[in-house]
Computed example of a mutant assay.
Amino acid sequence: MALTLEKDYIDYFTNNREEFQESLLSEAQNVRGKIEEILLIGNIDLLSNAHKLVMYTIQGKDDELESFAKIEGVSWASHSLTLAFKLEWVQAIRRTIWKYLQEFDKLNQIDLDSDRFFNIERQINDRIDKFLNELFLSYSEYKDKLIESQRALVENLSVPIIPITATVCVLPLIGSIDTYRTDTIEEKVLMEISRLRIGTLVIDLSGIAQMETEVIEHMMKVIEGANMMGCECVITGLRPEIVRKVTSIGLNFESKAQTKATLQQALEDYLK
């Protein structure tokens, strides 16, 4: 439902658009200096969008307001613009709307009764709050999807299975390995064995300095799973620290996989 005197309000805000924008910028001092920067970063026209928000609010276009909020949320999230900055801007718009409604009533000598005032107050503030709520939800959903896609990319890069021949692949592991990463390794290894029909998987551990007991035990299970799928595993590059840890807990890689001193040695055997 649109506001009472909707057409008069629209004409007033439209005819005084430049003055409204200047008043708005004086309400949001932190925004004034970043108008051009944000336009360049994300092609986001803050002043034009502020006018659109005002028009949707006055006209009671709730569906358009919701759609606009979702678009704004994605735009701000995709360009890493902060929600605190956006909140300051929208609250400045809210204050400026009320300032101009008051000026309109004075100019037209309209004496608001309490019922009409509170009805207008509820409609305007409810719509702006709804806009903010939808914008925050849209922003958060986009960020969550972005984080998830980045996490999946990192996980994929952290388990780089490299084909060497039609049936031989290499899995070079570097950095630290925790239980979360071994879960990722297990999932990726078993999926790629099936997809690529890997007959031999060379797992190079020369880039791993330490392994905790639970990680070693999990890696053993990864090798067992690969063996069950008909894939032979070859372990290369075991460091003395890891060998000592493996033997101290009574395990033995050689019972489940071949071992070679270096990746180069293993590749020479399979590339002859």
Rank of each mutant, 00 (worst) to 15 (best):
L3N: 01
L5H: 11
D11K: 09
F13A: 03
T14G: 05
N15T: 05
N16S: 09
E22M: 07
E22W: 04
S23P: 02
S23F: 06
L25M: 13
S26P: 00
G33L: 04
I41T: 14
G42M: 06
I44F: 15
N49K: 15
A50S: 15
L53A: 08
D63K: 11
E66M: 10
E66I: 14
S75P: 02
S78E: 15
L81M: 14
K86Y: 13
K86H: 10
E88G: 04
A92F: 01
I97H: 01
F104G: 03
D115T: 11
D115A: 12
N119S: 14
N119Y: 11
Q123N: 13
I124D: 04
D126A: 14
K130T: 09
K130A: 12
E134R: 13
V154S: 08
N156F: 13
I161A: 09
V170N: 00
I174H: 05
D178F: 08
T182I: 14
D183G: 13
D183V: 09
K188Q: 12
M191I: 04
E192W: 02
V202K: 00
L205P: 03
A209T: 06
V215I: 11
H218A: 14
H218W: 00
K221T: 06
E224H: 09
E241I: 10
V243C: 14
S248P: 01
N252K: 07
N252Q: 12
F253N: 01
A257D: 00
Q264F: 07
Q265F: 07
Q265C: 01
D269R: 05
K272D: 09
